[in-house]
């Protein structure tokens, strides 16, 4: 079980990365930012390796399904997508201050996966309902959507925080908030990641719907997970409309992105406490 070992290291590396991002924020030294990025990249690569190894292990057991089939595997993949999208964004905007809000989410998911009581970490054969080619596409797109929403959430937190410190220290201008990405850029990032997540979630819902049509006999059964993913989708639809039609920017958009992320979390985890057809995740 090499992959479980690697994953426990990955959890630790993400934590280190988060601590470095925190140092960067407080101490304002570039070296911390570089270390943090390096740790995040290292964690991400190891994470990818572990994912592939787990897939291979499943093949070796004669099962051969993508590791996306239970809560443990989905947590691991959620964290992976977040790391992936975050690093892509960091690379694009060439600014490392977002990490302090996004990387800990990946760390917390990994930590939850490894310490939650009763977490089943074994690779298990698939029950008949999951034996479908739609499984990988559906799970992949949904989690890409969730990850994009997480990035939007990180941007929103950063926006609100920067907005606050800026107005407080307007004359002096704290050194840190100067180094943060410009508010307009954060605003654009919130919008872009929300839009990306919106498209991915739409694909996720549609593929899920097609699959449900084959597996359950109905493309939509108002299962709590379905309903909540629709609610999440609508919240982000409101966000996009508010920006496009009403020209909402900044603070109000950030608040919507945070509300949306709360919906994402509920869709993903909270719904497990309701009776659901999605009970395997």
């Amino acid at each position: 079980m090499t992959h479980t070992l690697i994953l426990s290291y990955v959890t630790f590396i993400y934590f280190i990365s988060f601590v470095f991002y925190l140092f960067k924020m407080i101490l304002q030294k570039d070296i911390w930012g570089r270390l943090a990025s390096f740790a995040a990249w290292l964690g991400f690569l190891a994470h990818t390796l572990a994912f592939i190894l787990r897939w291979k292990a499943s093949h070796d057991m004669g099962l051969g399904h993508a590791p996306l089939t239970n809560l443990y595997e989905s947590l691991i993949f959620f964290a992976w997508s977040i790391a992936f999208l975050y690093l892509a964004v960091e690379w694009r905007i060439k600014n490392k201050s977002l990490g302090v809000f996004v990387v800990p989410v990946a760390f917390l998911l990994m930590a939850y996966a490894s310490i939650a009581p009763g977490m089943n970490t074994r690779i298990e054969p698939l029950i008949p309902a999951l034996q479908s080619n739609w499984l990988t596409t559906h799970v992949l797109t949904c989690f890409m959507g969730y990850a994009a929403f997480t990035v939007a959430f990180g941007c929103a937190l950063l926006y609100l925080w920067k907005d606050k410190t800026q107005s407080k220290t307007a004359p002096a201008k704290s050194a840190f908030s100067q180094k943060l990405p410009a508010l307009t850029m954060l605003d654009a990032l919130i919008y872009q990641s929300a839009a990306l997540g919106f498209v991915f979630l739409a694909i996720g819902i549609i593929t899920g719907s097609v699959w449900a049509h084959y597996a359950w006999g109905s493309y939509w059964s108002w299962d709590p997970k379905e309903t909540w993913s629709l609610i999440t989708w609508l919240v982000y639809a409101i966000l996009l409309h508010a920006r496009y039609v009403r020209g909402w920017r900044g603070k109000r958009l950030a608040v919507l992105a945070i509300i949306g992320f709360a919906c994402v979390l509920f869709t993903y985890l909270g719904v497990n406490f309701l009776p659901s057809l999605h009970s395997y995740i």
Partner: peptide, 9 residues
């Protein structure tokens, strides 16, 4: 609609 839908349970 979403607010109502939560009450399905």
């Amino acid at each position: 609609p979403p607010r109502d839908t939560q009450e399905i349970t």
